[in-house]
Each structure stands twice: as C-alpha cells, then as structure tokens.
Simulated scan of single mutants.
Amino acid sequence: MPVGLWNWVPLFVVLAEGVELDQALKDRITSAIRTQASPRHVPDAIIPVPAIPHTRTGKKLEVPIKRLLQGATIDQAVARDG
C-alpha cells in the first residue's frame, strides 16, 4: 500500500551546532527509536529544522504543523490571537 500523507510520519530534529544529519546519524536515530520505543514509531523521514515552534507556555505546536503538512494555509492552521 502506498504511503499517504495520513500515515506518513516525519521526525523534525534540531541539530546541535556543527552536527550534520548524515546517514550514520539517521541510522542511529532510527535504531534508538526502534529499540527504545517501537518499530511502529520509526519515522518515514528525518528532517532537520532550525527550531521547533512552541506556544508561550512551552508546548510544542504539533497540531498546526500537522495541518500545514495536510495542505492548510497558515491562517487555517494557526490561530493568531494576541
């Protein structure tokens, strides 16, 4: 069965300064997730990002990111009330 967006699992990572996301690091991340969590949680893609957005209280903004990946506009995905 082809992988659709509804079951595509990305892992966004913020790398330490000077660290490159090469195949060896991807393999270490994948192996750690497979053995310490579950093979079911192994991501389909590991994507480096400069930062993970958080709310003012420190919670990660997972739902808005998911909505953006599903094709929503920024205004549909994020409530911008001050």
Rank of each mutant, 00 (worst) to 15 (best):
M1T: 15
P2C: 14
V3R: 15
V3W: 08
G4S: 15
G4H: 11
L5I: 15
L5E: 14
W6R: 14
N7W: 11
V9R: 14
V9A: 01
P10G: 12
P10V: 09
L11F: 03
F12Q: 10
F12S: 01
F12A: 05
V13I: 07
L15C: 06
L15E: 10
E17C: 10
E17L: 11
G18D: 01
V19I: 08
V19L: 04
E20T: 02
E20M: 00
L21I: 03
L21D: 02
L21E: 02
D22C: 10
D22N: 14
D22L: 11
D22E: 12
Q23P: 15
Q23F: 06
Q23W: 05
Q23E: 15
Q23A: 09
A24T: 11
A24W: 01
A24D: 01
L25I: 02
L25F: 03
K26I: 02
K26G: 02
K26C: 07
D27F: 12
R28S: 13
R28M: 11
I29L: 05
I29W: 00
T30Y: 06
T30I: 06
S31I: 03
A32L: 09
A32W: 08
A32N: 11
I33G: 01
R34D: 03
Q36G: 04
A37H: 01
S38L: 00
P39E: 04
P39A: 05
R40M: 00
R40E: 04
H41Q: 08
H41V: 00
H41C: 05
V42L: 07
P43N: 03
P43S: 05
A45W: 01
A45H: 03
I46G: 06
I47A: 04
P48H: 05
V49S: 09
V49N: 07
P50E: 04
A51C: 09
P53G: 08
P53C: 08
G58Q: 02
G58C: 00
K59I: 06
K59H: 03
K59Y: 01
K60L: 05
K60C: 04
L61A: 13
L61F: 07
E62Y: 13
V63C: 00
P64H: 06
I65W: 10
K66W: 06
R67W: 09
R67L: 14
R67P: 12
R67Y: 12
L68Y: 10
L69S: 04
Q70V: 10
Q70F: 15
Q70P: 04
G71Q: 11
G71L: 05
A72K: 13
A72L: 06
D75K: 13
D75P: 00
D75F: 05
Q76E: 15
Q76W: 09
A77M: 10
A77W: 13
A77N: 12
A77I: 07
A79Y: 12
A79H: 13
A79K: 14
R80W: 06
R80A: 05
R80Y: 08
R80E: 10
D81Y: 09
D81L: 09
D81A: 07
G82E: 11
